[in-house]
């Protein structure tokens, strides 16, 4: 059970969170091409190593947060509340 340091609640079990994965920037819907849009929909980074991803603390503060996690060791080196400066680690 990964321990995720929620910037609001403190360290909590990952079972309290919903994994959202990589949060990609939404293309401008008015001008987007099919290729760009489907890249946005389907092509996510899948790195072996550190990754930046979004989690939703659905059983806690109900806030979304951004975590840096290592996909091999599951170590989390930082978390940050969305829209906030700094963060817990």
């Amino acid at each position: 059970m990964i321990l995720i340091p929620c910037p609001n609640c403190g360290p909590r079990n990952s079972s309290e969170f919903t994994y959202e994965g990589e949060n990609k920037e939404r293309p401008n819907a008015a001008t987007v091409t099919k290729a760009q849009w489907r890249n946005y929909l389907y092509l996510k980074n899948n790195p072996l190593g550190w990754t930046t991803e979004t989690w939703y603390h659905s059983s806690g503060c109900k806030k979304f947060l951004v975590a840096e996690r290592h996909t091999m060791t599951n170590e989390i080196r930082s978390t940050k509340a969305l829209g906030q400066q700094g963060g817990a680690s």
Binding site: M1, I2, T18, Y19, G21, R69, T71, M72, N74
Partner: peptide, 13 residues
């Protein structure tokens, strides 16, 4: 598992 990973660790849950 509910999150992306290359880790082949097991989980208790």
């Amino acid at each position: 598992d509910p999150y992306a990973a290359y880790s082949m660790r097991s989980s208790l849950e």
